[in-house]
Structure formats: structure tokens, C-alpha cells
Amino acid sequence: MTLLDVQDLTVEFPTRRGTLRAIDSISFSIGTGEILGVVGESGAGKSLTGAAIIGLLEPPGRIAGGQILFAGKRIDNLSQDRMRAIRGRQIGAIFQDPLTTLDPLVSIGRQLVETIQTHLRLSDRDAKARAIKWLEEVGIPAARARIDAYPHEFSGGMRQRVVIALALCAEPRLVIADEPTTALDVSIQAQIIELLKRLARDHGTSVMLVTHDMGVIAETCDRVAVMYAGRIAEIGPVVEVVRHPKHPYSEGLMGSIPSLEHRVARLRQIDGAMPRLAAIPPGCPYNPRCPKVFDRCRVERPGLLEADATRAACWLYDKAAAHV
């Protein structure tokens, strides 16, 4: 069942030198209990997509087109107040840096209870019991004893668990996790990934996992969307996109990741860099770097086309033209 449905979402930033289109008409959906990965290099628009969904776009950024449906209802045109009621209660958010997400002057128990009581009508005692339950759920040992501790008394990995508990304590149906493991060491990262997977499985929570780390995506997600220059280059089941990428960009991306399993003499490299927002080339945004580019790519922008098990925004997969 579809929980989140994003249709033709466009995000723009008006500047003195004209309007920059940071996200250009992207569409995707997330089902109940599904983990969708959003991957891409810095500046591809993946974090902005998350911010647009929870209504936290930094002005002057604005949604310039398309719509976002949550459980069948539009949420992109709600007032600040209505959106605040949804944020936290229906849609939770986990950000990259666990240090800046927590208030250093308030005990973690207080922060959790406050969050819970904002969204749910619970007595102090019930709210505290729920806070302890969630701290245990995210794997904090001796949660009852540590509930009055302050953020600085926790290590980085433990703080990120507290942040996850905060995002989940009102039991939202969708969690947007923006680089939740990037600031953490690998052994802690593995624990947090496992936690996210368990929550999706046990609670039916849907997760949109934004990260630049393809390895994290490969292990965590059901489906993945590869973003490039504010557009979705390819979207499909994670096994397909990782093993048999169809879009030349996803192919290059997979090839450029050094492998633990076998050592190669040279990594596949994508020459050049992602275009700046002010200078996105016409046609397919990837055409100047693409090894398989042909004339049509330079003039006409491809939509998402069926490519075996995935959908890729690439003219190579235009069945109508293949016969010509």
C-alpha cells in the first residue's frame, strides 16, 4: 500500500541571477513498511527532497510544482500549523549530526517526554514509561537509569540512538532519515542500520533513507532512487540497481566504488563533475559526462523509461525509437 506519493515535485530557489531549479519534477512513492533509499552525490538534491516532504525547506526555497500525497492526502500545501501537527506525529525525521539535533541543556528524558506529550495526550508517568520503552527499543542499555542524563554524557553512537528514539517515540508512519550514519564509525553504523531495518520490519514504519553511501543502501533498502542534478536517474529494486544498473550514471557510480572483495588495477572513474544548478545542460543532465551519449541526449530530456526491472531516465531504453 502506498503511504507517500510524490508527483512531479519541483523545488526552486529564486536568486538575484534568476531562479535555480534544485529539484526538477521528480516522482516516486514509498509503500507501508518499505525502506526507500535515495542516493546521489552532494548537490544532487537528495536532502532537499526530504526537507520538502516534511515541510522544512529553508526560505527562499519553495515548492514550485507537483504535489506530495501522504496517506492519500495532500501535505505540500498545508499551513505551518497543520504541517507541525503532522511532523513528528505522522512523519519523523532523523538528521546527520546527533550533536546539533539534541538540546544540550535538557536531559534526554525531558526531551523525549516533551516530544511525546506534544503529539499524544499522555500523563507524565505514561509519557516517561513510553520514553524508557523507546530508549530500550533503540538499544540503550540501562535506559531507566540513564533517562535523566544529558546529551554530553552519551557517546556519538548512543546520541544517534537517542535521536532515533526522539524521531520514533510518537510512532510516526514514515521516517525520513537524512545521512543517519555518516557521522558515525563503521561498527556503530552497522548497529544503527540494523536498528532501522528492525523498526521497519516490526512496526511497519516506512523509511526514506537519504545517503551518499551506496554500501549502506545496498544493505538496508528495498528500493533505491539514484539522483543526479535534481532529477531521478534511475529507480528500482535495490538488488537490480546495484547488480545490473541500467542508467550510465548508476553504472559509473557502482564502478567507482572500491570493493572489499576484489582489488582492481584502476577504479572506473566518471570524468568531470556534476553540473552546477545554474548550468545544467539541456537534454539529459548527464550527457556531457556520459560515455554512451548520442545526439538526442543533448536536446531532449528523457523521462523515466522501463529498463528491465528498473526505470531509468535514459534514451537508451526508449523502445519506440529502438526500431528506427
Binding site: V186, S187, Q189, A190, Q191, I193, E194, D213, M214, G215, V216, A218, E219, T220, V238, V239, V242, R243, M254, I257, S259, L260, E261
Partner: peptide, 14 residues
Amino acid sequence: AIPDLEMVGKARTP
């Protein structure tokens, strides 16, 4: 502990 492309779809014990 390292997430790896080869691990797609497999479970591990952290």
C-alpha cells in the same frame, strides 16, 4: 561491519 555492495539483500549480525 562495512556495508558493501556485495552484501545486497543479505543479513548480518552487528
